[in-house]
């Protein structure tokens, strides 16, 4: 057998991963872009989305598609609420001091992780996909659910893009991002915009978490890797830059899919982590043009 099918498979897997990554990373990037803070608990919001999907699947009887649809809406809403609460109760009080925010969100991530461990338990749990249908390629069949992931991610990102460009909320966000003081002077409720942005960023991670469960599994530590990968994507793409983040997500999702075919996952992780550290040191504006520095 020749290499073409392998490459096709790796590319498909890469695209699926890139889509999930794009959602997660955009959430992180949005929060950084508008609020200038780094949210270390972002991976935990992703994990909560996944656990939420599992919870819906166990609580709601009937066809898995029903519980999945419910999860896709309810889980992000709850996570978003939680994030807004954290913003109000903690981040707002430390005045979004960048360093204190990192330390606090580390604290938040520990709390979420351990509470999940104590309630949800230490085991990984699977969730049925909302539909089974294999698309036949000449060499192998491929789950249509994975195409669905790609579709949803692309649709959501397009919506985000339109919202940022054309809605009132998007305008408020951009104004706040551009200059916080001026925004305050113009009567923009910066505090509420921040809470909304923080919640929105968390919701994107949660959606990614819901989407990914039927494909992998829910586990209380599953937030680690997406957090690391999102960091990588956001830093390589240029912090706070949406197009850069999208480009980097596709690039890294694809190359990760391909690399893991050939190398051990640990080695791939070492290489990509090192790459990101070096990008931050030598090219802090990211590999794709200009964006906010941290």
């Amino acid at each position: 057998m020749d290499i073409a099918p392998y490459l096709l498979l790796a590319t498909l897997e890469g695209l699926v991963q890139a889509s999930v990554l794009m959602l997660t990373a955009l959430g992180l990037s949005l929060v950084f872009g508008v609020m200038r803070v780094v949210n270390v608990a972002h991976g935990e919001f992703y994990m909560l989305g996944a656990v939420g999907a599992w919870l819906c699947a166990t609580l709601i009887p009937g066809h898995p598609a029903i519980s999945f649809a419910v999860a896709l809406i309810v889980a992000p809403l709850i996570v978003g609420l939680l994030a807004a609460l954290a913003d109000r109760a903690i981040l707002q009080r430390i005045n979004y001091n960048p360093e204190a925010t990192i330390v606090s969100t580390i604290g938040i991530s520990y709390i979420i992780q351990q509470l999940t461990l104590m309630t949800f338990g230490p085991d990984a749990r699977a969730v049925d996909p909302p539909f089974y249908y294999n698309i036949r390629f000449p060499w192998f069949g491929y789950s249509s659910y994975k195409f669905f992931i790609i579709g949803v991610a692309v649709a959501l990102v397009a919506t985000l893009w339109l919202l940022m460009k054309h809605s009132k909320m998007g305008l408020l966000m951009r104004a706040t991002q551009y200059d916080r003081e001026t925004a305050l002077n113009f009567g923009i409720p910066v505090g509420r915009v921040y809470s909304a942005v923080f919640a929105f960023g968390a919701m994107m991670a949660a959606v990614a978490g819901v989407l990914v469960v039927p494909n992998s599994q829910a586990h209380y530590l599953m937030g680690h890797d997406p957090l690391l990968m999102s960091f990588i994507v956001v830093i390589v793409g240029g912090l706070g830059s949406i197009p850069g983040t999208i480009a980097a997500a596709v690039l890294i999702g694809l190359s990760d899919g391909l690399l893991s075919v050939f190398f051990s996952p640990t080695l791939a992780k070492i290489a990509s982590t090192l790459l990101v550290a070096l990008v931050l040191v030598f090219k802090p504006q990211g590999l794709f043009g200009k964006a906010g520095r941290i």
Binding site: P98, T273, L274, V276, R293
Partner: peptide, 28 residues
């Protein structure tokens, strides 16, 4: 030499990343 080219938040992330590399190396 490397990390001190950055400041505040970047510095935190860069040191975190290097440490993560070191940790993964002990596993690898």
């Amino acid at each position: 030499l490397l990390a001190l080219r950055t400041q505040t938040v970047s510095f935190m992330i860069v040191t975190l990343m290097f440490a993560q590399v070191a940790y993964l190396l002990t596993l690898y």
